[in-house]
């Protein structure tokens, strides 16, 4: 599998990663190699095999819809790079 430069740039955009111009060729090479490795599974006949999402094949457990967390708003906002008046701050999104 040979990814080209523009596919790598598109993937990086979808993943919200800014890639330095000079690093792109290395990612083109590395990601292509990893996909070559992955494609070894392509030849396997998997018709009728049910996809396995959970190693123990057990259903997701549900819990009662009750509030169990205490209010730690100020403490948690304190972890943010920028917060003010009870809110996380981000650059302006609406003019």
């Amino acid at each position: 599998m040979n990814l080209d430069r523009s596919s790598v740039e598109r993937i990086a955009h979808l993943a919200r990663l800014a890639l330095a111009e000079e690093d792109v060729p290395r990612y083109v090479r590395d990601l292509s190699r990893i996909l070559d490795l992955v494609e070894r599974m392509g030849a396997v006949d998997t018709r009728g095999v049910e996809p396995m999402a959970h190693p123990l094949d057990i259903p997701q457990r549900l819990r009662p819809d009750e509030v169990t967390e205490e209010d730690r708003r100020e403490e948690l906002l304190g972890l943010a790079p920028q917060a003010e008046a009870g809110h996380f701050l981000v650059p302006k999104v609406i003019d």
């Binding site: 993943a15 990663l17 890639l19 990612y27 990601l31 990893i34």
Partner: peptide, 22 residues
């Protein structure tokens, strides 16, 4: 988003995020 993630993650993590995204 893009620059925080680009600066915060190293090359192996970026490779895996991109493979996963793809």
């Amino acid at each position: 988003y893009k620059r925080s993630r680009a600066e915060g993650f190293g090359p192996e993590v970026k490779r895996r995020i991109m493979i996963g995204t793809y």
